[in-house]
Amino acid sequence: TESNRLLAEARREIEEQRERAQIRPKHTFTRLPGFFPRKAEMQTIERTLGGEPAFTVLFGASSVGKTALLREVLSQPQFHVLHFDLRIAGFADLPSLYTRLSTQMEQYFEDIASNMEGYEEFQKEAWCFKHDRINVQNRIADSNDSRARIRTSDVARLMELFQVISALCFQKSNSQTNILQSSLLKYLEPVLIQSTDTMKCLLDSMLVLTKQDKLCHVIHATSDPFYQTWLRQLNVMQHCKIINIGDCTKAETRTFFRDHLIPRVPERLRGRLEFEGLYEAFGGKLAHWQDFITDFVNSHGQLDIRSSSHFLQAHALLNLHIIHSSQAATGAPPGPGDNDTSYTASARESLHPNLGPAGFKIYSPISNPQQGYYSADFTAMQLLKVMSRLTKPDTPYLPYFMLCRELGVRAVDGMVKGRVLDLRWIEPVS
């Protein structure tokens, strides 16, 4: 009876293993359903990927559609994508980062092996990652020593392994079949990697993969306006190409409104929606249009712009900033008169408002929930001054450096950090 039971168990295990092997997650980069095509932006990204391997940073405010755009372009069959979404908290610690990088790379070469003719042998290259992972796991399991845990050097070795195997892969494509037109690509938002050494190691190896060895493209996508400052501090920025994704143009928004939104509204309510008025409020931010129209339909047309959730949130945020700033008892924010002292005192912060001691803490509502909306970096009067200027009809923007000279870097960066203003380093594609 006992041996029968063991035999049955072993059989079940084998069967389960076989099943597991068949349900590998596939290429996760698929097109977003209902994607609204944005020609200029797509062409810019395609052109970048069509050229020499480069390190590209894709900027754009949150919910501007960066991910949708990348997914649309990268789901085309000629691209092989290694995708890391660092907004997911699992990347915060080194062991998860290592494991995720390693499994992704293994998957990448397995995909090449199974999807491309003549590349079957790359199945073996995929095993390199698997066995590296097993070695690391064994090392940790065998030892109670704290030195046995996953270190930056493990990530470095992984990147090196990847570099060597990619080089092999590309040599083959040049000499024999020439079919590997693939661009490997990383989509990163390094919000949560807290280890300075690891981040530096990743960035350095990405520079090697792109600039030096010309093996693949690397794309970083971020909505952090201070990301550029951060990359500059790490001596990476000068090697990067910048693309800025902005909101849609008025013409695009009109098309979206006419073709995608209006058909969702019951006919009797359509008369209450007027494009120009809505455009004044929501501009080219399609996500806000979508939310508004959904709420509008749900409320049977009883919703005006001033009671829409995005308006209420913006309105509340401004009021909270003004009230908190005017009532802040301590740490009197610098006035325009004492810029010099405040600059010296907070030079490090002003380079990146959320730069922690590790130097890599990027502003993130996820990692910094308690600071979420409020900071006493500016006075209520300073904010009101900026607001009144920006609402004048002929003032689409304020020059950053000029305002910094006037109010102090800390105050201006505080408004950006406080999610009132966006800092635009270069003009958007559209």
Binding site: A61, D247, E280, A281, F282, G283, G284, K285, H288, I305, R306, S308, H310, F311, A314, H315, L317, L318, N319, I322, L384, V386, M387, S388, L390, T391, P396, Y397, L398, P399, Y400, F401, L403, V412, M415, V416, R419, V420, L421, D422, L423, R424, W425
Partner: peptide, 23 residues
Amino acid sequence: VGPKLIPITPIMRYAMAEVIEEY
């Protein structure tokens, strides 16, 4: 020339006008 500061969203500019009026 140089970096520009704009309201973080179009609706933020809209809300700014409203708040300025209130103040």
